[in-house]
Nucleic acid binder design. Structure first.
Lengths: 303, 303
DNA sequence: TAGCCGCGATAGGTTATGCCTATGGTCTCC
DNA sequence: GGAGACCATAGGCATAACCTATCGCGGCTA
């Protein structure tokens, strides 16, 4: 079945007269008859009754006519929507995030962006860093937010990378934990501790990140349970006296009994970067980037 | 644009690889490339970027892909719906009525019908008698309810006509009207009165009907205002001391100040008939007719 | 850096099919 | 009963959808 069949069918259903419908379609009547016959053959039932010199829709034809009209209208709308998207007038901006570290930045940036671009539908995909890189390559997302250090040499030249916010690291732990008494904590104090990894969007990015940092300090971290949400993380920390490493950027109001202590190693910094793919340039995206950079500056100031 | 283009486009959008998509479509790769190129040419913008040995959707392509998928799914659903309708499994039953005289019969019949045929969507068109006959001829309605006497000789042989309910006629008038004092009213008493016609669904069927009855009694009726609803009718009757003729079947609880008086001419009967078109036989319709006949018998008994 | 490989675009030929005109069959209407 | 309206059928043509063969380009490997 082709749209031609639907177009011809709707024309005949409108006119209830093959000759007039054919004229409207700039078509000879036998051609139209043949197409309708083919359509009926493919569907396996009659769309029209041609008895007594009069054409009328069958019941099935009635049902099909209304659906066919809808489909033809949908095709028209779809092409218009796509055209608008091609011209940047409307469409989608797909954004990759890591919720716990972008919550201070992305929602605020989106608010500003939407105010300036009300016809654009922004979609946030909370999918972890490595997933973002894959989807950036295929234009499945337009822009990603991720820690700078997940990007290797090749990726840094393949993508446009813009550092947005820099911050210290810190430890989240139970206030009954012996290290909670200190104002700051050194990485080396953590060599014998159990780390709780945060498994976000099914990725082990956070775990790998902590392992790399500990390796840099000269020890291999011990890992306990994995938490699959922030709430869960706090529960696990309270229950197992484990602890976790986070960038200060990810610090939120903590539940009672849970505390945050900055790392003494101030040279260890977390850098949140905004990554885009220069192969898919877009005026829309440029506008969003500008807004995100401004918002990032504000976030940096507040830190 | 044809559905073929959408099918091919969706396949490539799924695979992001022309060769694999072509294989899935049982098509050679150059044919697929050509069709996509044609589609892009017709739309006026690119759906894919083919740079750097990799195929990716453009933003417009993304939008169009999701719409195209919907359209293809809709086509599938539409054919299934029509097939169901062709087999009588689902679909529509379109009924023509004259609300004021069918209110006692049609809603009750529909309730029973729907209980037995839950997949059928019954649609009631309140369009007057003559309109019903036109729509019966073209299968726009499957069954109509109308007074028997609107059907002429030709129509009685063209359609299946089944008398359902017979009743007396009566006069609706203000209780301050001098004729309201009588228990019954003779048609000849009305020769000097003003008749109020009920213009239902834009038709003057009721007016013509009254004129014909008066002619039969030997006088020409005088007509006053037209009322376009029952409520309006009562207001006009109260305001102008006009009156109207109705079949007892159409008698409802009347507002205070308005009364109904039977016509003394008991030989004048109103017959409500159910009309169908034998050119469009349908098991569904037969089932409905049976139910309507049963319901009509009950209505007749209550009169 | 050379050469292979994967993949899409291009070129050229074949076939299917959508369209045409001419005509036939059936119904309605005068 | 003849005319006209109207849809179906028949037969021919031209477009275009499809094929195979080949080119060109980028990425990857030796």
């Amino acid at each position: 079945m082709e749209l031609r069949h639907l177009r011809y069918f709707v024309a005949v259903a409108d006119e209830l007269n093959f000759s007039r419908a054919a004229a409207k379609l700039h078509l000879a009547q036998p051609s139209l008859s043949a197409q309708i016959r083919d359509l009926e053959k493919e569907l396996g039932f009659e769309l029209f009754t041609r008895i007594s010199g009069r054409v009328a829709l069958t019941d099935a034809g009635h049902v099909f006519a209304s659906d066919a009209r809808d489909i033809l209208a949908d095709v028209k709308t779809a092409t218009q929507r796509a055209l608008d998207a091609a011209h940047g007038k409307a469409g989608e901006l797909r954004i990759g995030t890591i919720a716990p570290v972008t919550f201070a930045l992305v929602p605020a940036a989106l608010r500003n962006f939407h105010a300036a671009n009300p016809a654009i539908n922004a979609v946030v995909h909370d999918i972890g860093a490595r997933n973002q890189l894959a989807k950036l390559a295929s234009n499945e997302i337009h822009v990603g937010f991720m820690p700078l250090d997940v990007l290797d040499e090749a990726q840094r030249s393949q993508f446009s990378v813009k550092s947005l916010v820099q911050c210290e690291l810190g430890v989240v732990l139970d206030d009954q934990h012996k290290l909670a008494a200190r104002k700051t904590v050194s990485l080396l104090d953590l060599a014998e501790e159990t780390f709780i990894g945060l498994q976000l969007a099914g990725t082990d990015d956070h775990l790998k990140w902590m392992r790399r940092i500990c390796k840099g300090a000269g020890f291999s971290a011990t890992f306990g349970e994995l938490a699959d949400s922030l709430d869960n993380l706090f529960s696990v920390i309270a229950a197992t006296r484990g602890l976790t490493l986070i960038p200060k950027l990810a610090k939120r109001p903590l539940p009672s009994g849970i505390v945050y202590r900055p790392l003494r190693e101030r040279e260890l910094r977390y850098t949140l970067a905004m990554v885009t793919n220069p192969k898919f340039p877009s005026a829309l995206l440029s506008r969003f980037r500008k807004i995100a950079e401004a918002e990032a500056a504000a976030v940096q100031k507040r830190l």
